[in-house]
Amino acid sequence: MAEPAAPIPHPRLELSLAEARTRFVQLARLAGLTRQTTVVTEGGRPLAAIVGIAEAGPERGNEAAAGWIRRIEKLRAELRHQHAGLERALEQAWQELDRLSPPGADAHLDALRTAHSDLRANGGGP
């Protein structure tokens, strides 16, 4: 019986940063089609690699992205909650000012009411 064929190694190429920049589109396509890995060097030292998505391990990238998205959504929810609390506090402050000094009683407060009328009309937010 014949021996199994040895796996064909994936092509590997080393290029300087300047050369890789010039040929980036070609290198990216080769990585996807032939699984070629291009090692980008700077001053003779490896700096980065251009690899196909299969070699990059997309699962790991998706997990990391999902983690960041969860963190961002959590922060957004916390900020919305804080913003709503600040809006309520600001509206209560204006109600108290209106009670203590009705419109027309204090020119300075009337100027502030006018300056903030768009915020008060929109419920404190955009």
Rank of each mutant, 00 (worst) to 15 (best):
P46G: 12
F24T: 05
A93R: 04
Q92M: 11
P4W: 09
H108M: 01
A48G: 02
G67V: 01
L27I: 04
T41N: 05
L15H: 02
A121I: 14
H108C: 08
A66Y: 06
E63T: 12
R60K: 10
F24C: 07
R23P: 04
L15R: 07
G61C: 02
R80V: 09
L17F: 07
D118H: 15
A107L: 06
R21P: 00
A18L: 14
L30V: 00
E96Y: 04
I72S: 01
R35L: 10
V51F: 05
R60N: 06
A105R: 10
L47R: 05
A121G: 03
T38P: 01
I69M: 12
L112D: 13
E78L: 09
L112K: 08
E42A: 14
H81S: 12
G104D: 06
E96V: 10
A64F: 03
M1V: 09
L86W: 09
H10N: 15
R80G: 04
R23H: 05
S16V: 08
G123T: 10
L97W: 09
I72M: 13
P126Y: 13
A48H: 08
R88G: 06
A77M: 05
V51P: 00
R45L: 14
G61H: 04
A65K: 06
I50V: 13
R113M: 07
G44C: 08
A2F: 13
A111V: 03
A20H: 00
G57Y: 04
L86N: 06
L109P: 03
A5V: 10
G85D: 12
Q82K: 12
S117K: 08
R80S: 07
M1F: 08
H116K: 06
A49C: 04
L79M: 13
L30A: 15
A5C: 05
T114C: 09
V25M: 00
H116Y: 13
R60P: 00
L109S: 03
L79G: 08
A93L: 14
R113K: 07
A64L: 10
R88P: 03
V40G: 04
L47F: 10
E55D: 15
H116L: 14
L47D: 12
L17I: 06
I8C: 01
S117Y: 00
I72T: 11
L17V: 11
E59D: 14
A64N: 10
G52N: 07
L112H: 06
P9V: 11
D98H: 05
I69V: 15
L90V: 10
Q26H: 14
E73S: 12
I50Y: 11
A115S: 04
T37L: 10
V39E: 03
R21Y: 00
T37Q: 14
A20K: 02
E59K: 12
K74I: 04
A66V: 01
E19F: 02
G125L: 15
L15D: 08
R99D: 06
G67F: 01
E19N: 13
R99F: 00
L79D: 02
E14A: 15
V25C: 02
G61Q: 11
R71N: 07
E73W: 03
